[in-house]
């Protein structure tokens, strides 16, 4: 355990140093420190196997994990990148995006009303569930839990820190601590690199942003967006932009009128399912005087990157930054992948 603390302490130090000056260059300079603790640590990186899941429920994770079921795309993605794709025996239907990286006979389940019998029949060692499944506090997996299967719930994270903790939790459950530390610390370092640039944005050039998850129409009359207390709001904070609904709390459905009145400088369209959403917004009646529409600052962003709460939100944040402040972020060359690999190498020695 001591060694683990050493690694974490060093990394924490790294982060604090990194936020002070340039995160990316300093990482390499600090690598010596890492190496000194890293070399032979990997075999011992046995952060204790969690006894509580992220929702605070008691769980008993088996020592050996051979069969995993993941009921959220964000978790599926992390597991695949941990190199555990071949151990996944079941997924939720939304995770089917990654089907080509999974065993051919992987079972698919509905996230909202999973077939608990069929899941139990696969005799999984662990089932990862997400906040998207629980409705009003009742888990649709209750009968599975009662049958003694280890169900590890990961409620939807509300902050970047929460995302990092979730990755560490998944890593601890499946015995991939080194990777988990690398991913979560990689994300933290990457974000502090972005924050460094945002600090240089002059007060009078700060832009207000509205992120919309649909184009309002008679069929979808309200606009889905978010306020504070969400990791997406934190993404905007990090890059130095101001969420127009930042005074509200949580995920929101706002009226068209309120969105127009908010008069954002930039509109980001977070809806891959609707091709040409940005152009549709520009053509909306009554929006022609909104600054973002007037100045043509309506952009389509990748929903896959930002809507799955795992380390890839780092890439999403950079994408948002380049849309909102192309002037400030166009030279940014930091790569989440590089930092991640770097950190992992340092840990593994």
């Amino acid at each position: 355990m001591k060694k683990i603390f050493a690694v974490i302490l060093t990394l924490a130090m790294l982060v604090s140093v990194a936020t002070g000056c340039s995160a990316i260059t300093d990482l390499t300079q600090q690598s010596g420190v890492l190496e000194s603790v890293g070399k032979d640590v990997i075999g011992d990186i046995d952060i204790e196997i969690p006894t509580k899941d992220r929702a605070g429920n008691d769980i008993k994770v088996p020592d050996k994990i051979d069969k995993i079921i993941s009921m959220a795309p964000s978790t599926t993605q992390v597991l695949i990148e941990f190199g555990l794709g071949d151990k996944i025996v079941g997924i939720d239907t939304n995770s089917a995006t990654y089907i080509d990286k999974l065993p051919a006979n992987v079972a698919q389940f509905d996230m909202m009303s999973p077939d608990n019998e069929a899941i139990a029949a696969l005799s999984p060692d662990i089932v990862f569930t997400s906040g998207m499944s629980s409705v009003g506090g009742t888990s649709p997996f209750q009968s599975l839990i009662d049958s003694g299967v280890c169900v590890a719930d990961i409620p939807s994270p509300s902050s970047i820190e929460g995302i990092c903790d979730d990755i560490l939790f998944i890593g601890a459950c499946v015995g991939k601590n080194a990777e988990a530390i690398a991913y979560s610390k990689g994300l933290t370092l990457f974000m502090s690199g972005l924050e460094e640039i945002s600090a240089s944005i002059p007060e009078d050039q700060v832009k207000t942003v509205l992120v919309m998850m649909n184009v309002p129409s008679a069929e979808y009359p309200t606009i889905y967006t978010f306020g504070k207390g969400t990791y997406m709001n934190e993404m905007l904070d990090i890059i130095g932009a101001k969420n127009v609904f930042g005074d509200q709390e949580g995920w929101l459905a706002v009226s068209v009128e309120d969105a127009i009145v908010a008069d954002p400088d930039v509109i980001l369209m977070d809806c891959d399912w609707l091709p040409g959403a940005a152009d549709q917004v520009k053509a909306l009646e009554g929006w022609e005087n909104v600054k973002a529409v007037k100045n043509g600052e309506v952009y389509q962003i990748s929903e896959d990157l930002c809507s799955r709460p795992n380390h890839h939100v780092g890439e999403a944040t950079l994408e948002w930054a380049k849309c909102i402040y192309s002037k400030f972020y166009s030279d940014f060359t930091g790569s989440l992948d590089d930092i991640k690999t770097d950190v992992l190498e340092k840990i593994l020695g």
Partner: peptide
């Protein structure tokens, strides 16, 4: 069930985003 939320919203009724053409 993918569409149930949208359907539910439609059934609850709303005047939002209705314009002159309607």
């Amino acid at each position: 069930s993918d569409h149930s939320k949208q359907l539910y919203l439609w059934m609850m009724g709303s005047f939002s985003a209705r314009g002159w053409k309607h």
